[in-house]
Design a protein around this nucleic acid. Sequence first.
DNA 1: ATGGTGGCCCGGCCA
Length: 256
Amino acid sequence: MRLATWNVNWLAARLPRVTAWMEEHQPDVVCLQETKLADDKFPSDVFSDLGYEAVHHGDGRWNGVAILSRLGVHDPVLGFRSAEDEHGCRIIAATCGGVRVHSVYVPNGRSLDNEFYGIKLDWLARLRTMLDETCQAGGSVAVCGDFNVAPDDGDVWDPGHFVGMTHVSEPERAALRQVEGWGLNDVFRQFNEPGVFTWWDYRAGDFHEGRGMRIDLVLVSDDLAGRASGAFMDRNARKGQKPSDHAPVVVDFTDA
DNA sequence: ATGGTGGCCCGGCCA
């Protein structure tokens, strides 16, 4: 199974790039974030023509998450049980090829003194609760998406630059570890050295200057981690005309 | 360096 995650920063603008990328890389399951589409505007037919079933959770303006799969889409769950915990459309789950897949877009947090920072920490705690409530220990589980947290200092271009900022603060990293504590592994790290990033600000030539962060993660249960055969970030998808500010992350698994 | 860019929808918000 080839599993991918990509924050596309508005699917309407990115659809040609996304479909071309899927045809080139042939993922079996794709988690998308920041589609910024209402459900009735989601281009299910385009993905259907490529052989993928899709489930989408979006309200049209901000956020928006989806799962595309050519291994089936079973038992989809849109959002948390309580919408007020979710702060927009930020999580969708479905079973694809025997794996419980989650596509997540964690709140940005804005700044350490902003109310959205607390919302971000609460959201990550709520994610852990969802895993506790809906996933069986020992099952095949993947939580993929834009976590808006760089797991450690090797995941940012310059730790000194980020002192006092979100994405790197200890409470955020601790909240991420609590999610991983369900029994998930940051599988990208098995195959890549520190310094491989997934997001670069559009501004000031950050991409070309290498000023990025690794905030797009694929967290998988132990059985999947044991079957992982490779993982990469596709830098080419961040180049050229009208890119997302995120690059996709791909992980390959051998069959069970 | 409080800029810079690029999305939402068309002025302020969000990343």
